[in-house]
Amino acid sequence: MKRENCVSMEFWSCSANEGFARSAAACFAAQLDPTLEEINDIKTAVSEAVTNAIVHAYPDTIGKISMRLSLLEGRCLEIVVKDRGVGIADVAQAREPLFTTGSEERSGMGFTIMESFMDTLKVRSAPGKGTVVTMRRKIARRASR
C-alpha cells in the first residue's frame, strides 16, 4: 500500500511515555477526521503496544522504543511499535487472552485489546533481538460533512 504520510519517533521505555505515545498517535490520526470512538480505539491499542515494550521488552533496563505512524492510501492508519528488547519466545502463546509473564498489575489482555480495537495486528519477535508490532486501522470517510 502506498504511504502518503509518515512520522517516526524514538523514546525511552519510561512508563511516563505511555501517555505521550498514545497522544502522539491520536494527533497524527486527526488528519483522517476520525470519530471520538475511533481515536479512543487507536489510543488504547497504542497504549497496549507501548506498555508491552516498556514492561516486557526491557524488564530491568531502560531501552529505546521506536514508533512509526503512517497514513497509507485508502485512509488506512498504520502504527509500528518496535523494540530491541528480550523478545517473545512464543508469540502465539503471548497473544492468548489472560496470558502474562508480568506482575499483578498486568491483566494479560494487551494483545486481545489490540486485536479487537484494530483491523489487523501482526507481531514479529525473536528472543534476544526484539519485537515489532504492526497494527492497521482503516478510518471511514464521514458522509455528513
Binding site: E48, T51, S107, G108, M109, I113
Partner: peptide, 13 residues
C-alpha cells in the same frame, strides 16, 4: 478519561 488493560488489572485486584 482513559484506561487500557491496566484498568482491567486494577478492577480484578
Amino acid at each position: 478519561a482513559f484506561t487500557d488493560s491496566s484498568g482491567i488489572a486494577v478492577l480484578l485486584r
